[in-house]
Write a protein that binds this DNA or RNA. Structure first.
Lengths: 307, 307
DNA sequence: CCATACCTCTGATCTTAGTCAGAGACTTTC
DNA sequence: GAAAGTCTCTGACTAAGATCAGAGGTATGG
C-alpha cells in the first residue's frame, strides 16, 4: 500500500485533496505526458484511426463485426479504413467460412511487420518514461501503476446477467471448478457443468458474470431454496482480481437480484479452505448457521436477511 | 509502497512482467476507460479543441502566445478557435498592455459559467470512476495514483539551463532561501538574490532549473572554485517532489555540467538540518571533507571527484 | 524615423473523423 | 423456396483538425 504523500499541487493548494481530486490531478498530468504522445501513435505515416485498427487486428484477428465492437466504429467507417489497409497490403479481408455474410480480417506479413513496429514504438515510449528513474523508483512506479490498474479495472468491470448454461457462464464456471479441484484437499469431482442450471434462470433465479476484455473476472448466481429464501451459488472471483472489492460488489449485486426475485433472505455454503471467501461473507454481514444441505464439499453455512 | 500484486494479465501470461510492461498495460486499460471518455470532453455542444482551449483559458488567462505554447496549437488555428469562443461570448480578446502586438484572452462571465460546467463534468467523471469502490479501495487507488503521479511527473520534468539572474532562476531561489530561513534554527539572512550570480554563468559556471507547469521543482548551479574544482551552489528540491529522485538526477546533471566546464572535482557545503540533502550527497558518492570556506550557515562539507 | 523583427489574423486548402441511407450478398425461418 | 433478417460495402455528406503563405499592425535598435 502506497504511503499517502503530499503531491506538489497539494503543497501549493492545501485544500481538501479528496480522492476525486487525486484522480483528476493524475488524469491531467498523465494524459498530458502519455496521452498526447499516444496520439502520435505512430508517425508511421498513417492516421491515428488506421493505426489503431491495425494494432487491434494484430492483437487478435477477427471479423469486421468483432473489430467494430472492440473499437466502437461505424460499419461504413471501418470498411473504409480496412480498404486503406488493404491498399497498403497490410491486411487481407476474406469471407468468414462460418457465416459468409461476415468477413474475416488478417494481417499480411507486411502487416505483421508494421504491427511489430507499432509495438516497438509503444514499448519505447514506456521505456523513455521510466528511463530517468532509478531502479528503486521504477519499482515504486510499477507497483503503484499495477495497484491502480487493478482497482481501475475492478471499478469499471460491468456485472451482466447471462444464461447460466451459455458460453460466458460456462467459461467462468470452468475456472471456478478448476480452482476448487486444486484447492480442496481431496479435489473436486467435476460433473456436468450445465446440470442444475435451470434453477439459476428466471423467473426464480439468475446468473451473473463480470468479464473484462472477454476474460471472466467473477461470477455467481442465485437459485430458489423455497420458503422465500434464495441461495447464492457458484460464486467465484478470478485470483488475479482478489483484493479489489470485486467479490463484495458482486455479492451485493446478487443480494439485490435475490431481493428483486422476491426472496427475503439468502443462504450459501462454502469450503473452509476458501479463506478469502469466508472472510468476505463475514464482512458483508453474513452470520454462520447450521448445515442446511448435504453438500459433501461444504463446511461453512451462512445466511443474511434482505430487509 | 504498494504491494507488488499479480495483475489479472500476469496470471494469464506469466512471462517477464518488467516495469515497461506494467506501464504499457496500465496505459492501455487506463486510457481505454478514462481517455476515451476524456474525448467526449463534455458534450457541451462544442468541439474537443474548442472545449480544451476554454478549459485552459479558465485555468489561467494569458496571451495567445501562452495558450499556443500550452496547447501546442498553430497560430492560425488558435485564432480561429478564439473567434469561435468570442462569437459565443465566452471570451474577450484584447491587446496586451505590455506589448500591443500580443493579445490577451480572458473569460467573460458566461465563459466562467461554461468553464465551471466543464469542471463539474470532469469531477463527475472522476467520481463515477471511484463510485463502485469501497472507501478502503478508494483510499488505495488514491494513494497509488498519487504515488504514480509524483514519479511520472518527476520522470518527465526537464532540467534546463537558465540565466541565474533571470525570472525562472530567481523564482526557484526565492523558494530555496524561504525554506532555509524556515528550517535554520536562527533563520537565514536573505540578501540580494542576484549577488554573485555572475560566477554561475558561462564560461566557468552554469545554473539549472527544473520546472513543472511553470512551477519550480528544483534548481542548482555550478560555479568555479579555482584549481580545477567546481562548487555546487543553491541546490534545492521542492518539498513536494522529494523522494522521487529529482534531487539525485539534478545532482548527476550538475556533475556532468561541471565536467563539461573543465572541472575535475566538485565540492559543496550544507547545513546539518537539511538531513535529506546530506543523505542524498552521501548516497551519490560524496565524502565529507574539512571546511573549505567561511560560510557561517554551513556545517557539512563534501567533495567528489569527476573521473 | 527607418529598417528589421515580431505578433496575430485571414483566406485557401487538405486530411481525418464520423454519420447515414440504401444497394447487394448471404442466412435463417417458415 | 419465398420472405424476412443479417451483414458488409458504397456513395454522399458534414464537421473538425491542421497547415501554410502572406497581409497588416506593433515594437526595438541604431
Amino acid at each position: 500500500m502506497a504511503t499517502p504523500r503530499p503531491s506538489p499541487a497539494a503543497v501549493e493548494q492545501p485544500d481538501l485533496p479528496d480522492h476525486v481530486e487525486v484522480v483528476r490531478r493524475f488524469n491531467r498530468s498523465y494524459t498530458q505526458r502519455i496521452g498526447v504522445l499516444e496520439e502520435s501513435f505512430l508517425g508511421l505515416g498513417m492516421p491515428l484511426g488506421t493505426a489503431r485498427l491495425l494494432y487491434e487486428i494484430g492483437a487478435e484477428a477477427g471479423t469486421t463485426r468483432d473489430l467494430r465492437a472492440r473499437l466502437h466504429l461505424d460499419s461504413g467507417y471501418l470498411s473504409r479504413l480496412l480498404r486503406r489497409l488493404e491498399a497498403d497490403a497490410l491486411v487481407v479481408v476474406g469471407p468468414d467460412p462460418d457465416d459468409r455474410r461476415r468477413r474475416r480480417v488478417e494481417l499480411t506479413p507486411a502487416g505483421r511487420r508494421a504491427w511489430a513496429e507499432l509495438e516497438r514504438r509503444s514499448a519505447e515510449r514506456a521505456e523513455n518514461l521510466v528511463a530517468p528513474l532509478t531502479g528503486r523508483q521504477r519499482a515504486r512506479l510499477a507497483a503503484a501503476l499495477a495497484e491502480a490498474d487493478l482497482l481501475v479495472r475492478a471499478a469499471t468491470v460491468r456485472i451482466e446477467e447471462v444464461d447460466p448454461a451459455g458460453a460466458a457462464a460456462l467459461a467462468a464456471v470452468r475456472s471456478y471448478v478448476a480452482e476448487l479441484d486444486e484447492r480442496f484437499p481431496r479435489g473436486f469431482a467435476v460433473g456436468d457443468l450445465t446440470a442444475g442450471t435451470e434453477r439459476l434462470r428466471r423467473p426464480d433465479g439468475a446468473f451473473m458474470v463480470a468479464a473484462c476484455d472477454g476474460v471472466p473476472a467473477a461470477c455467481g448466481g442465485v437459485q430458489p431454496l423455497g420458503g422465500g429464501v434464495g441461495e447464492i451459488k457458484r460464486m467465484w472471483v478470478h485470483p488475479g482480481w482478489r483484493g479489489a472489492g470485486l467479490g463484495s460488489r458482486l455479492l451485493r449485486h446478487l443480494e439485490g437480484v435475490a431481493r428483486d426475485l422476491g426472496h427475503s433472505a439468502v443462504r450459501l455454503d462454502t469450503h473452509g479452505s476458501l479463506t478469502e471467501a469466508v472472510g468476505m461473507y463475514r464482512r458483508a454481514g453474513y452470520r454462520e448457521i447450521e448445515r442446511y444441505n448435504d453438500n459433501p464439499y461444504a463446511e461453512h453455512f451462512f445466511a443474511k436477511g434482505l430487509h
